[in-house]
């Protein structure tokens, strides 16, 4: 298909001046990428789909048997898996909502000129540039019941954030918010600065108050970029593994990706893990699809 497009370009067009034709140059850039994608993305995707219908275990030499939809049936009726999904959903909602609020709020604060604006923006962006493992370890120290600064500052005594099953998930979510709110801020800032200044002037002339201007002008015009931030953060939050795995061992923080990891690499139940991975993939695709539809509708205007 790709070559059909290329053939329509007249290869003689600008080729004479150079040794290589445009076609050759394009192929030199494109072919390695295509090969890489096939070997490392598309092939494993199809292969794992095949495994998801078998009882294959990577840790044993037993002959592999085709089990049809048995893996999917088992997983979808397993109460533990459902609780993993509920935990994940809670985590995604709390974490993404928090990031959107904090990130957009910061963007509103930064969307004016003041001294050291560049420096402040850079400092605010630092968290998202750190490794998740490092962030997790640090926040474990911050949350430490005996000498962590958080309990000290808020006067909470020896409250055990990460080992209390009721708060552990939220503690992890707060860390995620701290780390990724700057990303939302960055996209929001881009959106805010793209709103033409004359629209605000028109609104001022039209005697609109600041709240009215914010809800009727700013928010609708920034919403497409906010939606992109929302898609990215939801997808990421859905597959969170590192922070939660490092920070807490509570069953109430066992996100679906942690469950998947355990099933695949602790129980070596490879076939079933593939099936679970596919279930997660379909869910992420469904959520993203909803967002993208909304985004396209917003873009049409």
């Amino acid at each position: 298909m790709a070559t059909a497009v290329m053939n329509r370009l007249d290869p003689r067009s600008r080729a004479a001046a150079r040794g290589w034709s445009d076609l050759t140059i394009r192929n030199v850039f494109i072919i390695p990428t295509i090969v890489f994608l096939i070997v490392f993305n598309i092939f494993p995707l199809i292969y794992s789909l095949g495994y998801s219908f078998t009882d294959f275990s990577a840790a044993s030499n037993e002959p592999v048997q085709f089990v049809g939809l048995q893996n999917y049936r088992d997983l979808l009726t397993d109460e533990n898996i459902w609780s993993n999904f509920v935990i994940t959903a809670k985590y995604v909602i709390v974490s993404v909502a928090g990031q959107m609020l904090v990130g957009f709020g910061l963007a509103l604060l930064l969307n004016r000129s003041f001294a050291f604006k560049g420096l402040v923006t850079t400092l605010l962006l630092l968290p998202m540039m750190m490794s998740a493992a490092v962030v997790g370890l640090f926040w474990r120290l911050l949350y430490s019941p005996s000498w962590g600064p958080i309990n000290y500052i808020f006067g909470l005594g020896d409250f055990a954030w990460l080992s209390d099953p009721d708060t552990a998930l939220y503690a992890v979510a707060i860390t995620d918010i701290w780390m990724w709110a700057p990303f939302v801020m960055l996209l929001s800032l881009a959106g805010l600065s793209a709103v033409p200044k004359h629209l605000y002037e028109a609104a001022a002339i039209d005697r609109a108050g600041s709240w009215y201007t914010f809800t009727r002008i700013t928010l609708p015009l920034v919403s497409p970029l906010l939606m992109i931030a929302l898609i990215f953060r939801t997808m990421e939050a859905f597959k969170t593994f590192d922070i939660a795995y490092i920070m807490s061992t509570q069953p109430t923080t066992e996100l679906i990706s942690i469950r998947l990891y355990k099933q695949a690499f602790q129980q070596w139940d490879t076939g079933k893990s593939c099936a679970l991975a596919y279930i997660v993939l379909i869910m992420v695709l469904a959520i993203t699809n909803m967002y993208v539809k909304y985004l396209n509708r917003a873009k049409e205007r």
Partner: peptide, 25 residues
């Protein structure tokens, strides 16, 4: 009232909503 060179219409609102804007505000 001010009429801008580049119209400064609110792009996400219909013509009706644009005209109604100063009254709604």
């Amino acid at each position: 009232a001010f009429v801008f060179q580049l119209f400064a219409l609110y792009p996400h609102l219909t013509a009706y909503e644009n005209i109604a804007f100063p009254l709604r505000a």
